[in-house]
């Protein structure tokens, strides 16, 4: 791995960061920074070589994550992250590709790419930072904004129901799907670790705080602490959710692992898993 400037003494994860780009541009208390740390702890635990991996971000706050990491990085085409990822995986199937997408990147402009990547079981890790709004552009309503929430463009509260990204991923065919939140760093790291280790389309949705926009518009408070608490109060672990009534689960996000299974991954116009390629002598 290429490391330009090692910290004299400091957080050990800094060795994975492009330190000349720090401090990163995320607002004070933004969850994106916590996602970076969780991702790096997962990389460290799996002993992966970040220098051989590709990180992809579209456009948005979340999408800037790979820009700060010592890995090959593609950044700047809103919603088309999975199209890029598909191209890379077809050309170099052994390359580990990780996509960092905001909820808008993933489910709004990139929604179609998302369902088809899941259907094809593209061997890519898709980390979605759900901050409930289009953050970078100023906090507009997005497909994952909770119903009733005030945003920049819904001053009287959003009247649209949000997407459930994890449910969508499961029904579309993703083979690892999990949801977690930034205030549970251990779980965040563990799910990202499983996702990175998984062969197939692995999706980790992370409920994250955008105190600057979602916090100020929806909660009337720019305090990261208040938004973190709000997110905690709106999540229910899967095990507990199973015992709850539908009314009790109204407006709550279930956290946990929804599916972990295996099926052939996308290798091109003909879907062919590694074992079948071997059988035909093409491996």
């Amino acid at each position: 791995m290429s490391v330009s400037t090692m910290p004299e003494k400091g957080n050990p994860l800094l060795k994975y960061m492009r330190q000349d780009k720090l401090p990163h541009f995320f607002c004070p208390g933004c969850g994106c920074g916590q996602v970076v740390s969780a991702f790096l702890r997962a990389v460290e635990a799996l002993k992966l070589d970040l220098g051989t991996m590709v990180g992809i971000g579209g456009v948005g706050c979340t999408a800037r994550i790979p820009v700060y990491l010592h890995m090959d990085c593609l950044h700047g085409v809103h919603g088309r992250t999975l199209a890029w990822a598909t191209g890379i995986k077809l050309h170099k199937p052994d390359t580990k590709v990780v996509v960092f997408a905001g909820d808008g990147d993933a489910m709004s402009i990139g929604g179609n790419h998302f369902i088809h990547a899941a259907r094809r079981n593209l061997d890519v890790t898709f980390i979605v930072v759900n901050n409930f709004n289009f953050a970078m552009t100023g906090g507009q309503v997005a497909p994952m904004t909770p119903g009733g929430a005030v945003t920049m463009t819904t001053p009287y509260g959003s009247s649209e129901p949000p997407f459930d990204l994890c449910a969508m991923a499961v029904t579309s065919g993703a083979t690892y799907v999990a949801r977690t939140l930034t205030s549970n760093p251990a779980q965040m790291t563990s799910y990202i670790k499983t996702a990175l280790d998984h062969k197939g389309f692995s999706v980790v949705e992370i409920l994250s705080q955008c105190p600057t926009h979602f916090g100020r518009y929806a909660l009337g408070s720019g305090s990261p602490k208040n938004l973190v608490t709000w997110i905690k109060d709106h999540t229910v672990p899967l095990t507990a959710a199973d015992k709850m009534k539908a009314e009790e689960l109204e407006g709550k996000y279930r956290t946990g692992e929804f599916i972990k299974t295996e099926r052939p991954v996308f290798m091109g116009s003909t879907v062919c898993s590694a074992p079948c390629a071997e059988k035909e002598g093409k491996a």
Partner: peptide, 13 residues
Amino acid sequence: CEINCPDMALWIE
């Protein structure tokens, strides 16, 4: 603190 810091500004040696 180290694990939750969004800015990698903290380190407990």
